[in-house]
């Protein structure tokens, strides 16, 4: 089941600019046909439900996203309705990219305020206000603080991708694990400025309703690191490598959060030790694969043995 708020925002998205009020007004005037009532109910029911559920939090509901869009000018309600219906589809498409833009603006304005306000709705609120948006426009982040943290993660992943592209060209010679080490360190350094608030972010990410998205982000991160470190494996190693990198990232995060040493040196040393462990495991695997030849011979001779025992050799010789 989706969050009740999310359905509210879906309807908000399509009908920005106070159309909710307009159409309800026309309903009361009795100038609307029955089929229109039907459609309107379907459209605004979630909104009304939401209103009931969150009477105390009226700021979130049915407010336009941008203060500038909020206008109840003199046009008649029917005109507004007709134009809304004809342009509804197009507006929906435009609004998604526009919404991302708005989200990004609010997000980047709120990020410097995290130190004072933490990864919270209030922080987004303050961020939105500081760049001239309505205080309630934080509502487009569907899960408040959680969405904020996820947005941060996504941006860090994007940034890492960009760094990795440059690195790939520079350090073409160094081996895969060294690159994994470098990239992991770069990625962990991105959370350093927000370290005091990071336990809160980790808690938000591990909440049940956001854990699925968190895993997706973690998978994206591990996949990027492995890919840019030069991993081109297409078998079970693909999975083990990504699992190892994801595990390393989580361990690094946990150790950073508790680290009291200067410059978090202990954590970086811990990371280097874990990478060395991985290198040892890899060497062990390499020495195992050298024994494969012997295994092959054993398998082949046992197959011949089975053929002789079952009499297949003589069957084939006779059938020729």
């Amino acid at each position: 089941m989706t969050h009740p708020l999310s359905s509210c925002f879906c309807s908000c998205r399509v009908n920005r600019g106070g159309q909710a009020e307009n159409s309800l007004f026309s309903l009361f005037r009795g100038s609307v046909h029955l089929w229109k009532i039907d459609r309107m109910l379907a459209r605004y029911l979630p909104l009304l439900q939401c209103y009931g559920n969150f009477m105390g939090r009226t700021t979130i509901i049915a407010r336009p996203l941008l203060a500038s869009n909020f206008s109840t000018n003199g046009t008649t309600s029917q005109d507004a309705n007709a134009s809304a219906q004809s342009e509804g589809r197009r507006e929906e498409q435009v609004s998604s990219s526009k919404e991302d833009d708005v989200k990004f603006k609010i997000f980047s304005a709120a990020l410097p305020l995290v130190h004072q306000l933490g990864w919270t709705k209030e922080c987004l609120e303050a961020g939105a206000e500081s760049i001239g948006f309505s205080k309630s426009s934080h509502g487009i982040f569907e899960h408040g603080g959680t969405s904020f943290v996820q947005f941060f993660h996504r941006n860090c992943n994007k940034e890492l991708r960009k760094i990795a592209k440059v690195e790939q060209i520079e350090s073409a010679k160094s081996d895969e694990l060294t690159k994994v080490h470098q990239l992991l360190e770069k990625r962990l350094q991105m959370i350093l400025p927000y370290l005091p608030q990071w336990p809160q972010a980790m808690a938000l990410m591990s909440r049940p309703h956001s854990s699925l998205d968190s895993y997706k982000l973690l998978y994206e991160l591990a996949d990027d690191i492995c890919f840019f470190a030069g991993d081109r494996s297409l078998n079970a190693t693909w999975y083990t490598k990504r699992a190892a990198v994801a595990g390393l990232y989580i361990t690094g995060e946990l150790s950073l959060v508790q680290d009291k040493s200067a410059n978090c040196d202990e954590s970086w040393q811990m990371l280097a030790r874990r990478i060395e462990d991985l290198r040892k495991v890899e060497e062990f695997g390499g020495s195992c694969s050298r024994q494969q030849e012997i295994l092959k011979d054993i398998a082949q001779s046992s197959l011949t043995l089975i053929r002789n025992l079952t009499g297949m050799q003589s069957y084939q010789r006779n059938s020729r």
Partner: peptide, 13 residues
């Protein structure tokens, strides 16, 4: 509306 992006996020554009 002009908006200053933090340097860390500028690459997105």
């Amino acid at each position: 509306m002009s908006l200053r992006l933090s340097p860390a996020l500028r690459h997105l554009r």
